[in-house]
């Protein structure tokens, strides 16, 4: 029996060098997590404009986790640019009365199984609590 995902979809932007293989590592360990999670492989999440996140929420995505490489980012300066952008998205979310817990920036390494699961479960709780955007 699979763990039932709470209502609402979670989008995960996972970097191809760190978090995406990290999610694969969770799979290799056969650690179940809710199915409402959609992992997209990205080179660097710095490419997404503020509007992208807002659009996602508008389209019906309940939560977004940006799983980056953190300080180990292969593109020097990208992580800081990303962090700044996420701050701006938070401002815009507040303006639209979107709970900012729906968006989370984190760093996941290639074998960070526990951190991955923790992030997914936490976001699920948030999404479960808040309902659709």
């Amino acid at each position: 029996m699979a763990i039932q995902g709470k209502e609402g979809k979670i989008l995960i932007l996972a970097t191809e060098t760190c978090a995406y293989p990290g999610a694969d590592s969770v799979g290799q360990a056969h650690s179940s997590y809710p199915t409402n999670t959609y992992i997209l492989r990205v080179r660097s999440p710095v490419m997404f404009p503020e509007q992208f996140y807002l659009d996602c929420f508008a389209k019906g995505i309940s939560g977004i986790i940006i799983m980056s490489c953190g300080e180990e980012c292969p593109y020097e300066g990208a992580y800081h640019a990303l962090a700044k952008r996420v701050d701006r998205v938070y401002q815009l979310m507040k303006a639209q009365e979107l709970d900012i817990r729906r968006l989370r920036l984190t760093a996941i390494c290639t074998v960070c199984n526990r951190a991955f699961l923790k992030e997914v479960n936490q976001m699920n709780e948030v999404v479960g609590e808040l309902g659709p955007p």
Binding site: T17, C18, E72, C109, T110, V111, C112
Partner: peptide, 12 residues
């Protein structure tokens, strides 16, 4: 001393 994950820099 960088504390980066060993797997992440070995697997590539």
């Amino acid at each position: 001393p960088t504390l980066d994950c060993s797997s992440c820099i070995t697997t590539p």
